[in-house]
Structures are given as C-alpha cells and as structure tokens.
Nucleic acid binder design. Sequence first.
DNA 1: AGAATAGCAGATTTCGAAATTCGGAGAAGG
DNA 2: CCTTCTCCGAATTTCGAAATCTGCTATTCT
Lengths: 255, 255
Amino acid sequence: MTFDWGPPVRIGSNREHKTLTDATVDRLRGDIISGRLKSGAKVKSEDLKGLYGVGTSPIREALFQLASEGLVRADGQRGFRVAELNENELLEITDWRARLEGEALRRSIINGDVNWEANAIAALHRLRGVQTSRDLTRDKAADLWEERHREFHFALYGKCGSPWLLRFCELLIQNGERYRRAFVEYKSIDQSITQEHEAILDAAVKRDHVKAVSILDKHIRHAGELAQKFLEKSLAPKASSAKLKPRRAGRGRTH
Amino acid sequence: MTFDWGPPVRIGSNREHKTLTDATVDRLRGDIISGRLKSGAKVKSEDLKGLYGVGTSPIREALFQLASEGLVRADGQRGFRVAELNENELLEITDWRARLEGEALRRSIINGDVNWEANAIAALHRLRGVQTSRDLTRDKAADLWEERHREFHFALYGKCGSPWLLRFCELLIQNGERYRRAFVEYKSIDQSITQEHEAILDAAVKRDHVKAVSILDKHIRHAGELAQKFLEKSLAPKASSAKLKPRRAGRGRTH
DNA sequence: AGAATAGCAGATTTCGAAATTCGGAGAAGG
DNA sequence: CCTTCTCCGAATTTCGAAATCTGCTATTCT
C-alpha cells in the first residue's frame, strides 16, 4: 500500500512491462546505449513505428523520457536525435561516476547486511558466467555482459540508502556505457577488469570500505581511460574517416 | 551550429516555447512544485486536458518527462500521480544539495570570470527586487520569488563547467523546493536567508571559495531544517487533521 | 452468510489521421 | 550572378476516438 519514496530506480530491461510505452523505453534505450542507434542520428518516429511495431504515442512518450535521461535530444519542432558523444562529456561522466559510485559503495558497505553480501556475490557469479562467452562483439552477448555488469555494480550499491544517489549513478552509468560500446572494441573482457571486480567484492565482503572504494575508483577511471583512448583514435587520426558518425543511420536517402 | 554537450540544463519557465508539450511540461512542473497540485494527488489527463486546454498527447508526454525528473510517478496502467513527499527524502535532498551545490559553487568561483560575477550580482539584485513584496503567500508572488531565487543560485553555479553537475543540482533543487512550498508558511522572507545570500555573493566575488561554500552549506541545511520542522508539525501532531493534503488543490470541483 | 465470479462504469493507453511546421527548390527581382 | 520570396513535399506535432484495462458492485453458488 505504501509507496517507495525517492525517484524510481530502474535499470535496463525490467521483467514485466505493463505498458507498451515502458517496453518501448527499454528497447529504445537499449538500442541507443548499445550503439545500434548511432550518436547524433536522427530518430524518425515513422521509422521506429515500423521497426518496433507500435503507434506514434508510445514512441513519442518513450522519446521524452529518454530525453530526460540524456540519451536523446529534443530539437525544437524538428524531432529528436540521439545525443552526441564527445570527449569532454566522457571525462565528466567518468569523474562523477568515480565520486558518486564510490560514495554509494562506501555507504552500502557500512549499511549492508548478509543478504546484501549474498546478492553481490551472486551477481558477480552471474557476471563470471557470461565472461566465458567467446564472442562478445555480437550484440546479444555484449548486451548480456553489460547487463550483468550493471547488475553487479548495482548489487554493490543497493544498500547505500539513498534513492537519489542511486538514480544519479544509474544515469551516469547509462550514459557512460555508450562510450564504451561506441568506441571500445573488446573481443574478450580485459583480464584486469575481471580482477578488479573480484577485488572490489572481496574488500566489500570484508567490510574494508576504504580499500573497496579505492579499487572501485581505479576500476571506473580505468574504464574511462580505455574508452577515451579509443575515442581519440576514432576522432583524431585519419581525417579520411573524419565523417565517422556515418550517415548510414537514417535510411532515408541512400546517396 | 554546434550542439551544447551534456544534458540539457533548463530551469522552470523558458522564454520561448516551440512546442505545446514544452509549455505543458513547464506549466505542470510549476503546478506541482508550487503545491497547486498536492503530493500524492491523482493526475487525470482528462482533467488537465480541460484545465490546460490541450489534447491528450502533450499532457501525456509532459507527464513522462516529469516522471523522469521525480515529480510524478507512473503507476502501471493506473495512470499518474504527483510524487509523495516524505521526511526521509527531504533529508536526503538537503544533504545532496549541500554537497553538490557546494562543489558547483567552488568550481564556479575558481573558473568564473568577470561576466560570471556580473550575472550573479545582477541575479541577486533582481531577487532583492521581489523581496520587498508584501504578500509572498500569493501564488504569483511566491512563484516569482522562487524563480528569482533559483536564478540566483544558478547564476552562482553557472561556471562550474559540468553540465551533469548542473543537471543534478537542478533536479535536487526542483524536488527540494516542493517541500518548502508545501510546508513552510512564509509570510515574508526570513531575514537570515537574505543575509546568507548577500554573504555568499560577497565571498564569491572575493573568490573566497572556502568561505562561500561554507555559507552555502549552512544556507541549504538551514532551509532544509526549516522545511523539516514544518513537515513534522504537519504530519505528527493532531491526528485530527490526519488527512492533511487538504482537498483545496484542484480548483475544478469546488463541490 | 461468506466467497467467488461476472458485469459495468470510469480511466487509461493506443492508434491513425488531420493540422502545423520546417527546409529546400525554384522563380522573381536587384 | 547573387539575394529574396514563394511554394511544395516531408516530417512532426496534435487531436479525438477506439480499444484495453482496472476496480467496484451486484449476483450467484456453496
């Protein structure tokens, strides 16, 4: 009967979709974060209507929601486009992720009970499970790894006791993930990333929040630098491919 | 020609409304923050359609946007309601406001140029201008004071250099303002509040960020405690008025 | 009488089409 | 030849009605 307070904290795909709009939000969000919809691409509701098989309203409603989350920009009465990626924002997101997620982890370690530990352990185990997948470049596999990865992090932060903090982390993680998936070509997961996860969980379960937060900080900045390296490489070097963000997004006028 | 990066940072009422939906968002947000739509109240699109004189779509799109901002909750297929206020959230918002706005102010003082100073001074001057209004309980006057107040704070934070930080501050301020306006019965502005504004601006212009941030911190926690005091008084004491959230909200059916 | 089910009225969600708006192509004028 | 204005097609926004869903009420069965 009593409502949860604080902003709704919901990650990625929820099991039950009561509403067509909800389903569309998740699907669209997934397509943007994963990079299937490219940075800066125009989003034509007409196209999505066909693609997702829903009417105008759910798509439009989803678009407005994602605009508030920073994944999409509403452009006057000129429709919507996928938010542009840029290096400054990556830096900013990485920095705030490190700060806020660090705080969330610290508080969770202080507040967390055995159940919290169990959830985190379970989440890391599930993450290990998809780790072994050979081919993470395939959409399906990458989606799955990222989902488990998010779940692990949020299992860690779950007991921070602050819905707003969780919401902020969620927004940052979501937007940050776009950079990894847009630029980092990971065939298989870097071993050091995996080790960091283990180390964070270990310190967390031992209630050593100083150590845990310190590793998490390194983990996040590490990921940020990796993405940044690729991003620079993509933007700077060969002016030939300068027009990355290839037009191939909108399928309107080929040629 | 080039897009601003980072999430869109827009406060309250924007000058130009290109789209009916945009106008509806601002209007609805105003009605929620000001308390004209009460905490927990059901939001019937049918009612708003009549009240605002627009069709289903703009209202629905606005509702989804506000849901992402935390002012409204979307409830399965059971429609929307104004987000509930509660004491825990007030505490949380106050704490995060102090932290994040403090950081925003610190960075702005470090980055800010003469123009930034000028804007802040001008904003405070405009705030002083409405300060003299006799009757701040009237919607119009309170709306104006709050708008100027927000503008002053944001003028201060404007040079923090971090769109995400600004966005977070914006969300917190918005949601925090609801508590003041729901519970604090301010006939005239407390003198100490006014003095704090002056002191913050003074320290900011003198580039003393330690002092400025310290006063800001006090300012925010001060406002939080004030709201909390009233909130407790409203919730706890007389079970008689247990059904606070008096009906007088919607001016639709004066029965 | 109590519990469970069917039916109904009120709301909400979803659709498809009408009305606006944008941006460019082409004509007219300098 | 360049600029400005007008008109047209494409896309977006907005509306209003049809389809669904929810929660309550009345009815029926045990």
